[in-house]
């Protein structure tokens, strides 16, 4: 029999079979992912040109470019980082440097771990209820940035805490032994050592914020705007919602297909570029680290 028996030959056969099965599973996954990327690239690349990147949409979105959507996505992603990086880094410093084990720290950590799994559409509902309605910001860039900022906060916090914990304890002890106060040790010794790692987490979160659809469509996005937003209280277009709108709601979905794939390619390039940047920094950091 092929799969039974405990003779040496049977066990060797099983080993080989399992190796083949696992390697082909992995190969299949990688093949799917690679062909997906190729498809997105091939479909999108013919639509992307300088005009596509720098002009406003025309003729019910069938012509022209996606400039306002690019600008909107950049505003939203950068704006959300202005919220989540200070708060996330602060929370991470507290958890890693100040907090003593206890009920508060367990609660914070459980909260952060759970928030990371809360669906983005639920954050969208929260933003709609708190920022759009209760605070009266309306559907605006500001509401979108705040919502995305809270959405990425757990990711930023967890990555930053991890980065701080990876600085050796001897750094901290040496600073304190020289008479530094806690804050002096954090500011002058620990943060300079941990900052590249913390920022890597921030860049990954930036990519995630740029790729979100549902929270933006609930709190800030508009299908079309004739001008760039000139205040935080304006609605704005975004790449993700632009793709969604073109693919599902347009008057002529087939006619806007090149636009859809072109926008997808721009979005994927932006998000993967940011992630790649973060990964490269992380890899360099690991190699150059001397402790």
């Amino acid at each position: 029999m092929f799969l039974t028996g405990y003779g040496k030959a049977a066990r060797k056969r099983r080993d080989r079979l399992a190796t083949v099965v696992i390697a082909s599973l992995a190969g299949f996954v990688l093949l799917v992912l690679a062909s997906l990327m190729t498809y997105i690239f091939v479909q999108g690349v013919s639509a992307v040109s300088w005009e596509f990147l720098s002009e406003f949409p025309r003729h019910a979105m069938t012509e022209g470019g996606i400039f306002p959507a690019i600008v909107g996505t950049v505003y939203l992603a950068v704006g959300s980082m202005c919220i989540s990086i200070p708060l996330g880094f602060g929370a991470a410093i507290y958890l890693a440097e100040y907090a003593k084990p206890g009920a508060l720290v367990s609660a914070v950590r459980l909260g952060v771990a759970n928030l990371a799994g809360v669906p983005s559409v639920v954050f969208g509902l929260f933003g709609l209820s708190l920022f759009v309605t209760t605070f009266g910001f309306g559907r605006s860039l500001l509401s979108g940035c705040l919502t995305l900022g809270l959405l990425t906060l757990p990711t930023v916090t967890a990555a930053a805490e991890e980065a701080i914990r990876q600085t050796p304890a001897s750094f901290r002890e040496a600073a304190l032994a020289l008479g530094a106060s806690r804050w002096q040790a954090v500011r002058q010794v620990i943060l300079p050592a941990a900052l590249p790692g913390m920022l890597t987490g921030g860049i990954l979160a930036l990519g995630r914020a740029a790729g979100e659809t549902a929270p933006i469509s609930l709190t800030s996005a508009t299908a079309y705007s004739p001008a760039l937003p000139d205040s935080p209280f304006n609605e704005a277009m975004a790449l993700t919602t632009h793709i969604y709108n073109l693919a599902t709601n347009g008057s002529d979905i087939a006619a806007t297909r090149p636009q859809q794939f072109g926008t997808s390619l721009v979005l994927v390039t932006l998000v993967l570029g940011l992630s790649l940047f973060a990964l490269v920094i992380r890899a360099r950091l690991r190699r150059s680290r001397r402790w």
Binding site: L87, G90, A91, Y94, A107, V108, V118, V122, F126, S129
Partner: peptide, 23 residues
């Protein structure tokens, strides 16, 4: 600085409660 970091941590956790309250 200690107060600010504590505030951030409490906010990071309190967000969970805020979401529940508003939903």
């Amino acid at each position: 600085s200690r107060f600010f970091f504590l505030l951030c941590a409490v906010l990071a956790m309190g967000q969970m409660l805020l979401i529940m309250v508003f939903l």
